[in-house]
Amino acid sequence: MEEQSNLNKKNSRRQFLKKGLLAGAGIAAGGGLVSAYVDTNATESGKKVKVLTTGGEIMEVDRGLLKLPRVSREESHKGLPGRKFVMVIDLGKCKNARKCVEACQKGHHLPKSQEFLKVYLLQDSEKTSPYWFPKPCFHCDNPLCVSVCPVGATYKRSDGIVLIDNERCIGCKFCMTGCPYSTRVFAWKHYHEFDEDKEPYSPEASSPGKEGTVSKCDFCPDLIRVGKVPYCVSACPMGVIYFGDVDEDTVTNGTETYQFSQLIRDRAGYRYLETLGTRPCVYYLPPVDRQFPVDRGFPDLTEEVKSRYKDTPYSRKNKP
């Protein structure tokens, strides 16, 4: 049912895929679009995922991911030349569909207990309106996590991306207390999901994970390298997350492409907790002109996820 209603939406991802496929390689600059058909846009259902074909029928596709090139640890310290990445998250469109989280987990071979991307239910004060708040790593321009690292296991590259080298990390967890946004996660044991990844380790892939080390959202530089947007961006059915090169002044969510400066100006974009002086590279568009009321984020959740939001001011008041 959900799939059907999505189909009818303008700018829906399905429509886009149809276009994309018909256009074929016409999307010279958007090499990621064709592959989006196979590896992302996934609703997990066992080992298979559902995608829509060009003919409009729903097919199940093996959930295996395409092999991405993995660069060496030394190479991963250099940023992509002449780039500076930025993310814009439109809070007005998020309905906690959690596709971003699922795609990210799958792409990075993460266990359920480790989420690089979390979706919060926030309410700034009693009389303000609650909203869903997807939170990746902010890849700050003044990253405290990098400052406090005693061994240089986490570093900021020339393209603005903050990465972790799990082979260097000693697991002191100082960066986790240094980050004011609770972005980083720790591998408290060896999760079997780590073994799914047979490729050699690269900090750009943040995979395979290593026990006793810290990891976090990495802006998927391995995908960027092949001209694709991060997993969360292409997975979002609502097009909430925009990604791009800020020096090029462009961000895209896969379907729509905007001038970054215009988007931030027209939609009053801001950075979360600006007062902390961390200078994040993730911008938020305020939750105005909602496409969905907040409670639309609840019905499709599993009990486990639902109970995460039990103790929020919104849930205490509304009992969804």
Partner: peptide, 9 residues
């Protein structure tokens, strides 16, 4: 205008 990931209209 072609950009890194997509075309900017």
């Amino acid at each position: 205008v072609p950009r890194l990931f997509s075309l900017l209209k």
